[in-house]
Amino acid sequence: MWQWFHKLSTPKYYYQWSGKWLPWLAGLTIILFAIGLYWGLLVAPTDYQQGESYRIIYIHVPAAWMSMFVYVVMACAGFVALVWKTKLSEIVVSECAVIGAVFTAIALITGMLWGKPTWGTYWTWDARLTSELILLFLYFGVIAIYSSIEDKRVAAKAASMLAIVGVVNIPIIHFSVNWWNSLHQPNMDIISDKPSMDPSMLWPLLVMAVAFKVYFGWVLFMRIRNEIISRERATKWVKELVVGR
């Protein structure tokens, strides 16, 4: 088992191993998205309070969940990168930062689009919105430091360090923002005032959540493979791979 992990962390072996997984992940992503979107957008009943506009949660909520999940994945990979210094986990950190930032941006944009018809405004300094925005800034920080250091191995280590510092800080930020908000403008939290979700609405949401997870795996695998090819372009196996086809 341990040996297998070690083997997996070598770029060449990972490239071959992940190649076998790609079609499965791609297929599963497409199937889950098809089911989830059809179920959520067409089959699930209309909300009696918010009407059709609530359906954006089938994108918004999974994206928001992923934005936090990806950060944790990134920090764990960063920890592995700093402790065991494996090349693969370094690549995972830099690729996760970009994917996570996009998920966060999707969550923010869909949230704003939903907020306009529901709250009557695109933006409010609600605790959730604010901490999501700060999360986006943290992702930007990781991306910025990774892209400004020339040596990509050093860059990945610096980005890992920042991701770990961020993970310690996220609960503190989240908690402080919550508290700051409750001090200034109470009773803004419309989401928690809503009655709990009906199963007919919840199931498609869960399908979408799984779809987003598998999609993340798929995109991550593809991005890692890309980065491996680009980093190892001087090695023999990559040259054979490219010329051989």
Binding site: I134, F137, L138, F140, G141, A144, I145, L162, V165, G166, N169, I172, I173, S176, V177
Partner: peptide, 10 residues
């Protein structure tokens, strides 16, 4: 600034 300011928020 990009790295540190978000961490200063609390």
């Amino acid at each position: 600034g990009l790295l540190v300011l978000p961490l200063y928020i609390p």
